[in-house]
Computed example of a mutant assay.
Amino acid sequence: MTRRSLSAACAATAVIWGGATFADISPADIVWEDEVAIPASLNGVPGDPVAGADTVSSRSAGNCLSCHVNSAMPEHDFQGNIGPPLDGAGARWSEAELRGIIVDAKRMFPESMMPTFYNNNPDDYIRPGEAYTARAHNPETFSTLLTAAQVEDVVAYLMTLTDW
């Protein structure tokens, strides 16, 4: 089993860490601090910075490099300049603030174009219906863009980026 499929499997079920059992916090049950930070892990497990780097650079997962530049990943072409550089993210924001930004950047930056990566309420999104796309979202299968484990992995990776 690859690390990526293992992370996905862990996110879909309860995770055991240090003898305690944890389950993912539902997006609706997140406890925010000062409306911008999330102090508690979304799954009770420390993130894996290597898996987080995979998510940051993946076009099919986080797709972060479409909008952000990250000088720690020079092998990835066509990095974006819409969002702030990821360089120094771990020095600019706390772990709780980074978690909050990834979950819902619009709480800290109301004008942000960054998507909400951890929200599974289809009513919070504006999507064209069948008449426009023939593939409207299905509320029964609608899910978050990233799993709780992926959010924690990205936070762990961003915390390693302390140089500007």
Rank of each mutant, 00 (worst) to 15 (best):
Y118A: 06
A89C: 13
R107Q: 10
S112N: 12
F117G: 04
I101E: 06
S112Y: 00
I102M: 02
N119D: 15
N121H: 04
M113Y: 02
E97H: 02
E111R: 03
A96K: 04
N120G: 03
G88S: 05
N81K: 05
I82R: 13
R99V: 02
R99Y: 02
L98E: 00
M108I: 05
D104W: 00
M113S: 14
K106N: 11
G90C: 12
N121M: 07
P115C: 08
V103C: 04
V103E: 04
R99D: 08
L98F: 02
D104A: 05
F78R: 08
D87N: 15
G90Y: 12
T116C: 09
V103S: 02
I82E: 15
Q79Y: 07
A91L: 13
I101R: 13
P110Q: 08
G100T: 10
K106T: 15
G90P: 03
W93G: 00
F78Q: 09
A96E: 01
I82H: 12
Q79K: 12
P85H: 07
M108H: 02
G90M: 14
E95S: 14
G90W: 13
A105F: 01
D123H: 11
G83W: 05
A91G: 13
V103Q: 03
G88N: 04
I101T: 06
S112C: 04
P84Q: 12
E97M: 15
D124Y: 06
V103N: 01
G88Y: 11
T116G: 00
D124L: 05
S112F: 01
P115I: 07
I82T: 15
P122H: 12
N119E: 06
N81E: 13
E111W: 03
R92K: 15
P85S: 12
G88K: 07
G100V: 09
P115F: 06
D87H: 07
I82Y: 12
I82Q: 14
S94W: 00
D124K: 08
